[in-house]
Design a protein around this nucleic acid. Structure first.
Lengths: 348, 348
DNA sequence: TTGTATGCGTTATCAA
DNA sequence: TTGATAACGCATACAA
């Protein structure tokens, strides 16, 4: 009635590990490990017994310790080499993220997100992830060469350069822009402008290529194009106002590099007394949730970005497991959604 | 000329570890460890020598292995117990996230993000993070009781219940809503409606409390209130249309639970032939980047959410290190930003 | 100031 | 089918 299990050194153990479970179940740690990992070579009775001990002790495996012997981490990085808010101002991100999440749900990987250069740097300096999902990369972004030099699996989502070992999944910025110009041309527009991002953006390059090609092929004239530093509302607004103030010629239609840019442009046009689409047509890019609800509803370029995120994540995991040794380059088709910011060209 | 270091077993080592560096530098692993951790009790010459070896071998410490002996992971969770897109449709999230990122930049913690219940479940079942930053929690969300029962540090960002061990940082939903009603009352509005989220939302509760209190205190009359399931554009639009179709009375002003809700409402009003703000005034909540650029610019409730995110993260880290043992409850003041969706009440 | 030895929680190899 | 035991990469008392 007294001496049962009355150890003198009744110390308080911090975390209960696989050894504690083994002791409680009267088996070896190896057997517990087998049960945890669903190894079939375990006697059914013992398995249930061990499971009972696991629940009883509220045992929870240690993620990092589990992966240590494999030389892996069990973590995937979702990162941008640029500024903090890019991931969220990136019009596509929320949908791509949704695709990634779906894949992770059916895996055992965790997602470690880095939204600033210092965080990315840490990810590179320590073995913290088994692979990278990279977003919004621009020319000259920090740590990209370093990443190229490492042998970690990397998938870049969005436009990227050609000479690279990275696998790349990207919306068809070029084709989407072509579709926008063609739509405008069909509405009778002859003078069309491009509101594009900075030259440091691969996405800008692709959009520019598509724009130029379509303009030339259709015999149109590029008019009043604008180049901004970021694909955000404010930049689109300011650029248009500046252009107008300086007496620049206003086209009858604009193709924007992003929906946010388009919204800024729309606002600037409105503040300038221009009616949309009577006086000016505008096409966005991305079809963010807001686009449909905007006033007026935004004509824009749409693509299945959830699917893209999903495939990117699936591919990365496959690469980690030795698949897809040679870089892949996949482009996702984009199509135009005509709403209310595009109309027949005005007679000027 | 032949036998120097000519081991028979010239196997290819996978990752180079602290031992390799130690051997190359002619010191013990412990000394290398000290250099890595900036331990001052290392001779300057040796330190430089070791650093040279680290660079030469391109040695990178292993994050998980480093934290194992400490019984920690070095990871923080940023999670929501709800659906995937919540984190991104949450109007506040991008700014709060910015605050968190800033703190992480100056720490050694990594951020593992979970945007789906399965991912959250994994985080709970394995020792993967040292603490939780929880977002968009609603009544009845899965795994919350489980988390409460564990002894991991947790900080909830956004409205939450009173009876909890979790520390809580939240915008002042109640006070902000009061400010909105007061503003409207000053403009002469008497019949005011609330476009609120679902009753499962703590945020809705707070907004409702503030609304009711202000309405009663100012002697106004609640008119045409709407309750939606999510704080998104679509819901606001649909609810208003349904209400109108059913012949419900339209107030002269609406207070919305979020900017996105306000945008949907604005769109519905516009489609119904109502002018803003001549026929109807609307106040949003959150002051998302879009609000200012919307057409017309949205009057809304603003707060310093970057700061809130920053303090939440700082507090969580402190908790992990043994600080703030008792739950804290911090409410961030919100103020109204009057733009163009609010005006003098029409005579009806 | 530096080295040795041990432990962190788990997997995996090899016997039994 | 199960059990020792050696890694996995590193930090840290304890010695020297």
């Amino acid at each position: 009635m007294s001496g049962k299990e009355n150890d003198p050194k009744t110390e308080l153990k911090k975390t209960i590990g696989i050894i504690d479970v083994a002791r409680d179940a009267g088996v070896s740690p190896a057997t517990v490990s087998r049960v945890i990992n669903g190894n079939p070579t375990v006697d059914a009775k013992i398995r249930e017994h061990v499971r009972g001990a696991i629940k009883k002790l509220k045992y929870r495996p240690h993620h990092a310790a589990r992966n240590l012997p494999r030389g892996l981490t069990g973590n995937l990085a979702v990162a941008t080499p640029r500024s903090s808010r890019v991931l969220f101002t990136n019009p596509f991100f929320s949908r791509i993220f949704e695709g990634i999440g779906g894949v992770l749900d059916n895996s055992t990987y965790n997602m470690v997100v880095s939204t600033t250069p210092p965080q990315l740097k840490r990810l590179l300096d320590a073995h913290t992830v088994d692979g990278f999902l990279l977003f919004s990369v621009r020319k000259g972004d920090p740590y990209m060469e370093e990443l190229e030099a490492m042998d970690l699996p990397v998938v870049v989502v969005g436009a990227y350069r050609q000479e690279t070992r990275f696998t790349n999944f990207s919306p068809d910025y070029e084709g989407g822009t072509v579709a926008a110009v063609e739509c405008l041309a069909n509405l009778g527009h002859r003078k069309i402008g491009l509101v594009n991002g900075p030259s440091s953006s691969y996405k800008s390059d692709a959009g520019f290529r598509g724009f130029q090609e379509a303009i030339r092929r259709l015999g149109l004239v590029e008019t009043g194009s604008l180049a901004v530093d970021e694909f955000i509302e404010h930049e689109g607004y300011a650029s248009f106002m500046k252009w107008k103030t300086e007496g620049g010629e206003i086209p009858t239609a604009y193709v924007a590099g992003s929906d946010h840019l388009a919204v800024g442009l729309l606002k600037a046009a409105s503040d300038s007394g221009l009616r949309v689409p009577e006086d000016l047509s505008v096409v966005g890019f991305g079809d963010v949730p807001l686009a449909e609800l905007f006033n007026p509803p935004l004509t824009t370029i749409h693509g299945d970005l959830v699917e893209m995120g999903s495939e990117a994540a699936t591919t990365l995991i496959s690469m980690i497991n030795g698949g897809f040794r040679v870089p892949r380059r996949v482009v996702y088709p984009m199509q135009i959604i005509e709403r209310k910011t595009t109309g027949v060209a005005p007679r000027r």
